[in-house]
């Protein structure tokens, strides 16, 4: 596995290069996939969107956020600004000056939006799955949820809390014992992260994005939500603010729509990327004028 030092943190990176890039020899578009916080890792993409993007002629770049998966787990540096700085340094290290397409799931979408606001010249388009920007309201919601997990519950129950959150709020598969065991394994990684780093104290304490900053974001944005997900109301507000924004809702799904409806999310994202006006053209877009 590839190790890439970025912003002083040893990152685990996996790339699935474009298969069968266009015959005209154009560079395939780079799509950088940013996963969620606590219970997530690049695995959520590696077995879902990653291979589908590669097959469709995109260079799929996946990495574990600091503290997650197989990236290093420093004690400090878990504000959204830290994750944005990591991503900027990572793109430099990978020689991807951009503009690139970003896909962010859950907290990864929060990072992707923050990155696009602070590095607009490096982003061709944004696909944001079940997520929203790091506004003051977001910080307050995150702080309250983390207080529940880390202050009012003993450590072993904090782990269960993540499983409960994931099971009841997110997943449509609650009750299947094998699935619950799978989620418990993810919860264990989250508990380890919270126990050994400052993430729970820091993640909501960074700079907040303002409406003016979001309204100035020029790149096209696609918001993909589960019909019964966590961010419907915020998405309506965000889509009204952003100059170029579409919202797609996947019926019958909750917060974990990326993993549980991977085919639909992939199709929506690929269609959006192929139609995006900037960035290196996708091989698909050479065949016509995708609408």
């Amino acid at each position: 596995m590839a190790r890439v030092m970025a912003n002083g943190v040893d990152h685990h990176v996996q790339r699935l290069p474009a298969a069968g890039a266009g015959p005209h020899g154009a560079d395939p578009p780079a799509v950088v996939l940013v996963h969620g916080a606590f219970i997530d890792s690049l695995a959520s993409y590696y077995f879902t969107l990653g291979p589908e993007f590669a097959a469709a002629g995109c260079d799929a770049v996946m990495y574990d956020l600091r503290g997650h998966g197989r990236s290093a787990r420093p004690e400090r540096g878990y504000t959204v600004a830290d994750f944005t700085a990591d991503l900027a340094a990572l793109l430099d290290a990978l020689r991807l000056p951009g503009p690139v397409h970003l896909v962010g799931n859950s907290f990864g979408g929060t990072v992707a939006l923050d990155f696009a606001v602070h590095h607009p010249e490096r982003v061709a388009g944004l696909t944001v799955v079940e997520s929203g920007p790091a506004t003051r309201e977001w910080a307050a919601t995150m702080a309250a949820a983390l207080r529940t997990a880390t202050e009012t519950l003993p450590e072993e129950e904090a782990l269960n809390w993540f499983v409960e959150q994931y099971g009841t709020v997110s997943s449509t598969r609650r009750g299947d014992p094998r699935h619950d065991a799978h989620v418990r394994r993810l919860g264990r990684a989250a508990a380890r992260l919270i126990r050994t780093t400052g993430i729970a104290r820091e993640i909501h304490t960074g700079r907040a994005l303002t409406d003016a900053q979001l309204a100035a974001l020029r790149c096209p944005v696609l918001l993909i939500n589960g019909q019964d997900g966590l961010v419907g109301a915020e998405s309506d507000r965000l889509s009204a603010l952003l100059p170029d924004c579409r919202v797609a809702v996947v019926p019958g799904h909750k917060h974990s729509v990326l993993v549980e409806a991977a085919d639909q999310v992939s199709e929506l994202a690929l269609h959006f990327i192929a139609a995006a006006p900037r960035g290196t053209p996708s091989p698909d877009s050479a065949e016509g004028d995708p609408k």
């Binding site: 596995m1 996996q14 699935l16 890792s41 690049l42 695995a43 959520s44 590696y46 077995f47 879902t48 990653g50 291979p51 589908e52 097959a55 574990d64 998966g69 197989r70 394994r185 993810l186 990684a189 991977a262």
Partner: peptide, 29 residues
Amino acid sequence: EMESIDLVALSARLEEWYGPRVNLAEYLA
């Protein structure tokens, strides 16, 4: 007790050993 991120590491090792024909990511997708 493998976590999904361990499967990613396994996938990379399989490809390294057997070559690109063995594509666990695509198979699992």
